[in-house]
Design a protein around this nucleic acid. Structure first.
Lengths: 248, 248
DNA sequence: CGAACTTTTGACAAGCATCAACACGTGTGG
DNA sequence: CCACACGTGTTGATGCTTGTCAAAAGTTCG
């Protein structure tokens, strides 16, 4: 028996994230990495997918940040989720090809686009991968719930601190940074659209957080100077980010 | 060949909802209705599942209203979703057994509890049902996104009108009412926890909506007196409630 | 070096929260 | 059957958080 060697593939970050939900059989790992895909380099604010358009691919983020968002009739925007290296953003396109949201980069980014048919096929033939995709979507839903709480029931300072804590923990998981120091090429206007606030008010909260020595910004990096204090300010508990907690 | 006859089963409302995503093979319909389950009658504010507890069943609503919600350290509550007849609320328990939210009835309710093992089994053996479960979860996620927009970027009047429109359309789909007249045994405090407002302010908005002749309440029923006007007041577009739009 | 974007500042307004009290209806137990 | 208690809805006064508008200062990139 010749052992399957793990190929070098652009999809490695995706595999790494999925294996966080439980180890995959070697053949499944290989099949995942061999999924047909086209790689694309996008500039800041590049559109990946528009609301109401039919999607033929699923998007995996390889580098940079992207987001889901909706634009309202009055012109205001709500960012629904932020995505980073390894995130499978669009797996649901295999089941519901017309999205209810826009998908756009927040920064320059690398993405891989996998045909929906290939996603459907690998899920049908490999139960362990289907399960991993499932959990990826369910984690996404858990984050969406927490964001609903965030904008619904927390004040501006708490909202922003919570968002920054979440981003830190997720960067750590994705190996793109540490929770106390991670890439932050995101504007305060983006943070405003995440938190349902105005850019002006976000700016004032940032100043307050800096004045209290909770964090520092600059050089497109966010540095948390006092994690416990920032987590407390954000009423942040990371439980919801661990889908497999409580499992053997 | 003897045709399979559709059994009478408490799970009929669940089947009806799933068939809205596409017709199921007769054998799958039968298998779904024959899923093992225990039926329970709950009083108002009855707990179905608590955050952090391990779930051994998935909950299907047969009658009444239930909701997901989280309670914050400061005591305030955010309702994350409202569920009604036919909704499979908890299918994800088959993959992630420890929920990040509480599940509680808003009114007296009938529910069916299906063991997670039975859910996993029927998904593994019947692809059409697995697909329907998938779409059920993805529709749930689409609604969650819309709620994030609702609390993030709409003012109080718009938020409440939007919620009432959504409930009407969903009642119509679930055959528990019409969009212009549906059961509403829900308190203004519940609406406040849905919309991230205070009960006092919800009360004032209701008065304003009644004064403008958009709706009437009473007898535990909500009557929309002018649907186009209410939909406009809520900036409501029902697209996100139709997961299979754009499909053959 | 200049244009476009992002951050920052200040004055002012508005929407919603807070607090407290009262009215209303409904179900329940004496 | 009435009395009462509790949950729900309603009202008013007041204040704070956040939004709005406008402009200036700082930054990045071609």
């Amino acid at each position: 028996v010749i052992a399957l060697k793990t190929s070098s593939s652009a999809l490695l970050p995706f595999l790494a994230k999925l294996e966080g939900y439980g180890r995959l059989p070697a053949e499944d790992r290989e099949a995942l990495l061999q999924l047909p895909h086209s790689q694309r380099t996008l500039s800041r604010s590049g559109h990946i997918l528009r609301e109401g358009e039919s999607a033929t691919t699923c998007c995996v983020i390889l580098d940079g940040y992207a987001c889901r968002h909706k634009i309202l009739p009055n012109g205001s925007r709500q960012i629904l989720s932020v995505h980073m290296k390894g995130d499978g953003v669009d797996l649901q396109n295999a089941f519901i090809p017309v999205p209810d949201y826009n998908l756009q980069t927040l920064t320059a980014a690398e993405v891989a686009l996998i045909p929906v048919a290939a996603i459907a096929e690998i899920m049908a033939s490999r139960p362990a991968i289907a399960r991993a995709f499932f959990i990826e979507m369910l984690l996404d839903a858990a984050i969406q719930r927490e964001w609903t709480v965030n904008v619904g029931r927390r004040d501006a300072r708490t909202r922003i601190a919570h968002f920054l804590c979440e981003l830190g923990v997720r960067c750590e998981t994705a190996h793109t940074g540490e929770r106390m120091r991670y890439p932050f090429p995101i504007t305060q206007e983006h943070v405003a659209d995440v938190t349902g606030l105005t850019p002006v008010h976000v700016n004032r909260v940032f100043q307050s957080l800096r004045a209290d020595d909770l964090l520092a910004t600059g050089d497109r990096t966010l540095v948390v100077k006092d994690w416990p204090a920032l987590a407390a300010a954000g009423a942040f508990r990371s439980d919801y980010l661990n889908p497999v907690r409580g499992m053997g």
